[in-house]
Each structure stands twice: as structure tokens, then as C-alpha cells.
């Protein structure tokens, strides 16, 4: 069947030549402490200048998604790295390249940031539209940290449309107190605040997907 050519990477068609007999997924490992840093003066490793700025702060629809990452003792984790992947405000999934070398105009939907010494992250982005009917809009987030032996996935839902949140199938399947850990808070300044807790009473809900062991 004909399909419109996507720029998004796809795996399809034939297998690689002489595929290995064992196709069990490769294990993950911790990101460790030395994955790098990016600041105004230099960048080393995975984080890069412009990583957390999916749009310019001057963009009329620019929004801030920010928070802190905590461990099971309630202490901040100063060596975590977060990524977000999201739809645009119309709910469309971006297919544009250029996230690592932003041109200042193209919305690629993906961002990365190493938290600072106080475990704080802050993305400047556009708020996603609903990804489909009956679903509330959210950012997909992946968390890496020293001491965390494999990545964790979660969703960060926008808090505004209560009906959409009530109707969302994933949120509906969670008890109320767990559900809250996936919904951002709208602050008075208009920004979205959302903390990640790897462990403890208010532990964030992390997701498992079919075929992806965690």
C-alpha cells in the first residue's frame, strides 16, 4: 500500500543482512555521572546549547515547563538528564530535523537538558495540542540519571482541560493520588511546573510499553 514518505526515521521492510540469531533487546545501563554539560561558555557530551529551548523565549506562544528531580530521600538529584518529545499546538507530530542545531524557527518537538546543581530543569517550548480525540495533551518525558540503571518514561499532562483529563484512558486507569504525579501545575506566571520523584510516597508514575522491557 502506498504511504506518504515520512522524514521520521522508520524501520520497515527487509531485515538487515545476516541478522543475528539472537534478537533479544540489548540491555540498558545507567547514563553515569560524566554524560556532559552545556552552559554559556562550553558544551561537552550529550547536553548541548539550545537543547532545552525548543522555541525562542520571544516566541508569542512560548511556554515554560520546569521543575526538579528528587530521589527517595527527598533530596534533589543534580546529575539527571531529561528529554521531552511532543506534538505541536495543533496536535501534529513534528517530522523536521535540526533539534541539535536549531535554526530558531523550526519546531522539532524534541528537547534535552541536564538538570542543574539543584536538580532543576526548564524547557522553553510550545504547549502540545491533543494527540487524538479523547486524549488529553501531554509531553512525553524520558529520565536518565546516575544511579538509575535504565531510563524511565512518563507523561506530563497539561492541567487546564479537566474534561479531557477525566476522559483520558491512561489517566482514567490510575488511582487519583497516582494520577496527580503525571499532571503539571499551572503557576500564576503562566508556566507549567512539574516535579519528578524517582521514589517515595509521591513517586511519579513511570510507564511500561509492550515489547519494551524496563
Amino acid at each position: 500500500m502506498a504511504r506518504e514518505e515520512l522524514r521520521t526515521p522508520v524501520s520497515r521492510g527487509r531485515t538487515v543482512e545476516n541478522p543475528p540469531a539472537d534478537l533479544t533487546p540489548t540491555p540498558g545501563q545507567t547514563i553515569g555521572p560524566f554524560f556532559g554539560y552545556a552552559n554559556a561558555h562550553e558544551e561537552v557530551g550529550l547536553p548541548y546549547r539550545g537543547g532545552p529551548e525548543l522555541v525562542s523565549r520571544a516566541h508569542p506562544e512560548a511556554s515554560r515547563l520546569h521543575g526538579q528531580v528528587y530521589d527517595g530521600a527527598g533530596d534533589v538529584i543534580p546529575d539527571a538528564m531529561l528529554e521531552i518529545w511532543q506534538a505541536d499546538p495543533q496536535g501534529r507530530i513534528p517530522e523536521e530535523t535540526g533539534s541539535l542545531n536549531r535554526d530558531g524557527y523550526t519546531f522539532t518537538g524534541w528537547g534535552r537538558q541536564a538538570v542543574d546543581r539543584l536538580g532543576t530543569y526548564s524547557f522553553t517550548t510550545l504547549e502540545p495540542g491533543a494527540p487524538g480525540q479523547g486524549h488529553a495533551p501531554y509531553f512525553l518525558m524520558v529520565i536518565f540519571a546516575r544511579g538509575l540503571l535504565n531510563r524511565l518514561f512518563t507523561r506530563v499532562y497539561l492541567p487546564d482541560d479537566e474534561q479531557a483529563l477525566a476522559d483520558d484512558p491512561l489517566l482514567a486507569s490510575l488511582p487519583a493520588e497516582r494520577r496527580r504525579t503525571m499532571i503539571a501545575t499551572r503557576l500564576d506566571d503562566g508556566s507549567l511546573h512539574h516535579d519528578i520523584r524517582l521514589q517515595g510516597d509521591r513517586e511519579t508514575v513511570f510507564l511500561a510499553y509492550p515489547g519494551i522491557e524496563s
Partner: peptide, 28 residues
């Protein structure tokens, strides 16, 4: 010790944005 979740992960079928990935190219 203090950085692993103690609750089971929540199983879900991936949807839309989860079924896609950012694209990188020679600009990157």
C-alpha cells in the same frame, strides 16, 4: 538505592507521539 522506583511501572499501549521519534539529519 534512592534512585529506583519502588512501585510497579504502569503498563500502557503506546499511542501517537509514543509511536514516533524525532528526526535527525545532516543539519544536526
Amino acid at each position: 538505592v534512592l534512585r529506583h522506583p519502588t512501585k510497579d511501572p504502569h503498563h500502557t499501549d503506546p499511542e501517537l507521539i509514543e509511536l514516533t521519534s524525532p528526526a535527525f539529519g545532516h543539519r544536526d
